[in-house]
Amino acid sequence: MSDRPLRIGLVCPYSFDVPGGVQFHVRDLARALEGQGHTVSVLAPADDDTPVPDNMTPAGRAVPVRYNGAVARMTFGPLSAARVRRWVTNGQFDVLHLHEPVTPSLGMLALWIAQGPVVATFHTALIRSRALQMAYPVVRSSLEKISARIAVSEDARRTLVEHMGGDAVVIPNGVYVDEFVRARPDARWTGTPDAPTIAFLGRLDEPRKGLPVLTAAIPQVLETFPGARFLVAGRGEAGEAEARETLGEHARSVEFLGGISDEEKASLLGSVDAYVAPQTGGESFGIVLVEAMSAGAAVVASDLGAFRRVLDEGRAGVLFRRGDPADLAATLVRVLGDAALRREVTENASRVVRRYDWSTVTQQVLTVYEMVLAAADGAVAEDPRSVRSLWTGLRGAS
């Protein structure tokens, strides 16, 4: 691999006003690449007053859109296209790395506007995606510009192949493992054998994140562990209100922490006895599982294909039947009551997570960059056909 420092442009489709998994992946990939000596610029939707890293260019206000089973905040249209063109022209990038280029946001615009060494990462994993089916005709001709494709998991690769054809190399999401290993437990969140603590992180108002499954399981867990505390972190006032109403008297055993910082998240995961991931679908990877595993929490997760693979088919965590509150409750009771089981899965997890550390993942991404650059005719530049592509694409997307 060449030791030449690269100028890399990363495009994130989703807003940093309400960040999620893809945003964190892009942010951390930029940090990891800069740690290798490369120059990185990130383009992402964000309001002008939203705190963003120094290497990020905010592309303006995003609007919430129902997309692939969630509410995604994206930006699109002629004004956004002008900002993308200016960023591409000024960046003088060796490699342009687009995330979710078929999502109607900045990545799609950049794909229409730019040409040269282009890498694309696909994060979505859905068996049937109406959004992808609708987007594909709009970007079909531009997909030929992509020099190399990455999928964050086998599930994401399968979605790509089934909806758009072609193939991709699987490179997982990354985690700064040692930052979670070193996280200090917080006495507020630490449990005891009689009063264990269980954490959940996710958007509270997205049903597919599984909070309703967890709340339905809590009363059964409390029958065996009446002192158990459930620590729920994440935004979504409507989801919290619905959970409180469902829990009734059992709500006193649940602490809603709201949005928490990265440091608080690491401390929380390093404090609890178990982390529960009750998601019901639409997950391509499961980055929070790796974070919990790194921090030493015993992971209890629904048996989604992506989660099963991250948990090494159940050797690095314990699986329960997706969408089944009774099985979740029984599984949690078993895990909380069996210290030897928790020790076994967390020891296995401490070995498994190393494959997801950014030190490993970054080298895999750089290998793709070098492969693309070896076959490239020049650097990233504006495509002379971009005006026509934009007009056709924006008209087709409207």
Rank of each mutant, 00 (worst) to 15 (best):
D3N: 12
L10P: 06
G20L: 07
V22W: 01
V26C: 04
L29P: 01
A30S: 12
R31W: 06
A32Q: 07
H38D: 10
T39M: 13
V40S: 03
V42R: 02
D49K: 10
D54M: 10
D54K: 13
R61K: 13
V71A: 09
F76P: 00
G77H: 06
G77P: 02
V84E: 01
R85H: 08
N90A: 13
G91S: 08
F93N: 05
V95K: 04
L106S: 05
G107C: 09
L109C: 08
A110Y: 01
A110I: 11
L111C: 10
A114Q: 14
G116W: 09
V119S: 00
A125G: 06
A131K: 09
A131T: 07
Q133F: 05
I146E: 06
V152K: 00
E154R: 13
R157E: 09
V161E: 15
M164H: 08
A168V: 10
A168P: 06
G174C: 11
A183L: 08
A187E: 14
A199P: 03
R208D: 04
G210R: 14
L211M: 07
V221Q: 06
G227L: 11
A228Q: 04
F230M: 09
V232D: 03
R235V: 02
E237D: 15
A241W: 09
A243I: 08
A251C: 03
S253T: 02
G258D: 04
D262W: 14
D262F: 14
L269Y: 00
S271F: 00
G282P: 05
F285C: 09
F285Y: 12
G286F: 00
E291I: 08
L304C: 04
V310N: 00
E313Y: 10
A329K: 07
A330Q: 12
V333H: 05
D338N: 15
T346K: 00
A349W: 15
D357W: 14
D357F: 13
W358C: 04
V361E: 01
T362Q: 05
Q364H: 13
V368W: 00
V368Q: 00
M371W: 02
A375G: 10
A381E: 15
T392A: 14
L394K: 02
R395C: 03
G396T: 02
